[in-house]
Write a protein that binds this DNA or RNA. Structure first.
Lengths: 212, 212
DNA sequence: GTCTATACTACGATAGAC
DNA sequence: GTCTATCGTAGTATAGAC
């Protein structure tokens, strides 16, 4: 099923599927509504993806592809953590955090994140796809950078937990966005707010990683 | 399912509703399934709550009640942030973070969090209920403590963003639990892992809040 | 390849028995 | 207060026209 056709129907179906599966879940979303929103007949889903489940997994693959594509610019040619000193590792951490935050704040990621959060709470085969293609590689790098940038003698297990909490600081702006808006008093998270978050995030990445 | 003969039918309906609405959403969950799992007829939902939507909002109220009850021990009689010096405010922050983490890690909160996360991504009237009764009061206190514990001259807007990221560090263990388990290599988050997280969290709360 | 038509199941709401 | 029965709607899947 891993086809890379450029047929508009396929693409529109996938985009709509990500949106609606993210919003309503595998069971909650209806193939009729997805097909209608994509401007085609429901049976096209059967034809192209074998059914609802096939469409769902294809949507997961698509999300992984798109996130990987967005992060490619940051990860391509990025230095190997093992060969960095603490200061350079910290700088690379900030770069990675920036990229992750950009992802979380991008409007395009709203649908992806809904889909992914669902998979976190109730993992299916879709989680494996997402983990293997995006989350795994990125978190591996994240942990290595934390290990490198952290205080000498930082236990590997600690570095992993720190990496998770680091990720949480970025994640919260997507996952708890409604609450974050109320706490900050912002009406939306636009460029101005994004800059503010980034500034504070940089300081805190430094503080978290270097804390003894 | 454990037999709870003493529990009134509407309580069993609410507990089941939280579980199933959290898992499948308002649209995805079916009143038939909820009623069946609660051991009653579907029409009981109409009788007690007026319909599906009424049950959903009642579930939101129930979640708010239960979380408030769990935090009551921590918040009751807790000192007013405005009257604390930086050090005591930091200590109170740690107490609050501990309570929040305990909430996130508790098995009972799994269903609640699914429900709440859904409301964050797609807020409905249920979000207002949750905000007014729990999130609002708790985050207000959180922001005040951060302001108090932070460096002198910390801008209020900064304190709010820091409060959000602080919350993210705790939230991540519930929301991105599947990923967190893979990153840490843990099979589950039990007492041992909980202690480890707590230890690191304390250090990082301190680091985040006092960072200049 | 994309459509319409159809078979079958499950949904939420409601009426009425008890 | 809780049940069963039933209505109209909407769901997925599939067959077949074009």
């Amino acid at each position: 099923m891993a086809k890379k056709t450029r047929k508009p129907i396929d693409d529109r179906l996938l985009d709509t599927a990500i949106e609606q599966f993210g919003r309503n879940g595998l069971e909650g979303a209806s193939t009729r509504a997805i097909a209608a929103a994509a401007g085609t007949a429901m049976s096209s889903i059967t034809y192209h993806y074998g059914g609802k489940e096939g469409l769902y997994l294809a949507a997961a693959r698509r999300i992984a592809e798109q996130i990987a594509g967005r992060l490619a610019g940051t990860l391509q040619g990025a230095p190997d953590p093992e060969q960095l000193d603490a200061e350079d590792a910290l700088a690379q951490l900030v770069v990675l955090a920036d990229a992750a935050l950009g992802l979380m704040l991008s409007p395009e990621s709203a649908a992806w994140s809904r889909f992914i959060i669902r998979e976190q709470a109730e993992p299916t085969e879709g989680f494996e796809i997402l983990w293997d293609r995006v989350m795994g590689p990125v978190t591996t790098r994240l942990v290595r950078l934390v290990q490198r940038a952290g205080p000498a003698g930082l236990r590997p297990a600690d570095a992993r937990v720190r990496a998770v909490t680091l990720f949480g600081q970025v994640l919260v702006f997507r996952v708890a966005r409604a609450a974050a808006l109320r706490v900050t008093g912002w009406r939306d998270i636009g460029p101005a707010q994004s800059t503010e978050i980034r500034r504070i995030l940089h300081a805190q990445v430094r503080a978290i990683v270097t804390a003894t």
